[in-house]
Design a protein around this nucleic acid. Sequence first.
DNA 1: CTGAAAGCGCTTACAG
DNA 2: CTGAAAGCGCTTACAG
Lengths: 347, 347
Amino acid sequence: MKNQKRTTIYDIAKKLNLNASSVSRALSNNSNVSEATRKLILDTAKELNYKQNSLASNLRKGHNQTIGVIVPRINQNYFADVIAGIEEVTYQKGYNLVICQSNESSAREVKCVNTLINQHVSCIVISLSADFEDDKHLQTIKEHGIPLIQFDRVAEHLDTFKVLNDNEQASIDAVSHLIEQGYKRIALLEGPQNLNIFRQRKAGYLAALKKYKVPVLPELIKENAWTKELGAESTKELLNLAEPPDAIFASTSDFSALGVLEVATKMGLKVPEELGICGYSNEAFTEITSPSITTIDQYSVSMGKTIANLYFQEIESSEKDNNPKIVSIKPKLIVRSSTLRNKTEGY
Amino acid sequence: MKNQKRTTIYDIAKKLNLNASSVSRALSNNSNVSEATRKLILDTAKELNYKQNSLASNLRKGHNQTIGVIVPRINQNYFADVIAGIEEVTYQKGYNLVICQSNESSAREVKCVNTLINQHVSCIVISLSADFEDDKHLQTIKEHGIPLIQFDRVAEHLDTFKVLNDNEQASIDAVSHLIEQGYKRIALLEGPQNLNIFRQRKAGYLAALKKYKVPVLPELIKENAWTKELGAESTKELLNLAEPPDAIFASTSDFSALGVLEVATKMGLKVPEELGICGYSNEAFTEITSPSITTIDQYSVSMGKTIANLYFQEIESSEKDNNPKIVSIKPKLIVRSSTLRNKTEGY
DNA sequence: CTGAAAGCGCTTACAG
DNA sequence: CTGAAAGCGCTTACAG
């Protein structure tokens, strides 16, 4: 691959018999240049096809207008939307994004963190991988003085910026809705409990049952059912119980809920009459399954914007540590056909 | 935000009474260091929490192990999957990705290109925005000696690496399938004709009709129907014709096909008996609509891997310009219920 | 095997 | 308003 020499400010300076510092000043819109020489310099820059070398500029300035983002998977709607939201804001500010995926592996997550630190990014945004246990790599980020914003799946005890969903309240809303629709035996598909979000969703489930004085039945709580396949698996087991549930809250994801729906359909159960189904995340497909699936919208794009704004607010504020460090976004229950047994309720 | 000083190779050198060059050699696994000093250096680096500054390293080495990717939207399944594929390969090689979205605007695309050139990325991967007209910015990339890989939506006449889908053949397959299923009046929803992919899909439609000697009816060809809403709009117009179509090929996207399905369902038409529907892209939801939607799979993740491999092959090859510059991937027709009128065919 | 020096391309106090 | 010089943190020929 050819490694052709690119024109530098020295090339421009030489051509105009000027000093490189003047060229630099002119190109960076610094006021200390006469209009005449500025014009001369800009014209020559154009003529020579000059592009700034951001590596050199950032090295000299000691920072990099770049934000690093680490997510478990970029091709999952939720994360792709959050990234789109971040990008929308950072683009306006002239920042770039370096995006890494941990593939749900914390070993790989650690590597991503190291790469981003090496790159001298201005900020690191992260949502933890599923096998999260140790937050040493997050502490390393802090030790290097890099602002850290955790979102959604976070290490709770670590003092960093956080943008969260109120998962517990959302789950309370979902389960309360199921109870109000007359469902009596509500099962829970739960996700890995090392992740805060799944712990909170479970807590919300339990809180709602308590609120309505519905007994908690351990056999209706299924661990680790957070893919479509695992959701289907758990559903088969649940529906084969002597006393099967009449509703399933797939708190892990809509994919899991889809697994539930497919098994129910295959077994000839009527949804929502015989089985209510509620998912989580408001994936696009939940609107078009038949029946459509009740779910929880997490405002992912707006979460992304919030994350980016948090960073810019922080660096623009003169006083330190005066800004709220934690932003919680309230997700919204989207009621659809899969739980709407009591049609007179008028949703 | 605190700007704390990070430890450099000089800090390590000073502490050990060595020269920075030895430190650099030890850290870069260069052989010209004694085992003893190497160990000493590595230990001290760990102790002082040293992280390399990639900016400086890349500036000095004259390149950046980074690949820039520009796509219209990252939160569209197709692009997110391609990016995931690229990332999978580049990660193995220790390269990073800088991802930009043009938001379907070529003005913004130009800005993205400039940013990436400034960043001295090693390679730029791009899929063009919908309002593509001018390829000046792509030529700039070439002028700067940066390898350019176009994929999917490309400027055809420009001599660059290209990773393409055989859109024409895929469309021929789709329309042939419709004809073989007994559909007689097949409508086409087409996308912006300034993009190669939509021109090719239209060409495939026309070629299939010709092959089967089916007349082309201009009133069955609808321009610019590439969102769900526009697809629905066009479908209404089509179905209100004196002689409406009995099948619709939404060559633009599955979203458009979804619009078709919704209108058909609302109007009480039976799919596939009274109306056949075929989409494009194999979005996840096409499998779970009722009926499920026949569509075309573009092997997006594997496209991403192909793109990345193309780059690495090129830089690793000693002979220049000996590698195939254009890779075409044959998409696959996925036949589902929405076009399966003739069930005895045994799909 | 180790050191001294130059240089990647830029920015920025410091003079004048 | 312009120039000369130093330095961001690293790598790499060149000596020895």
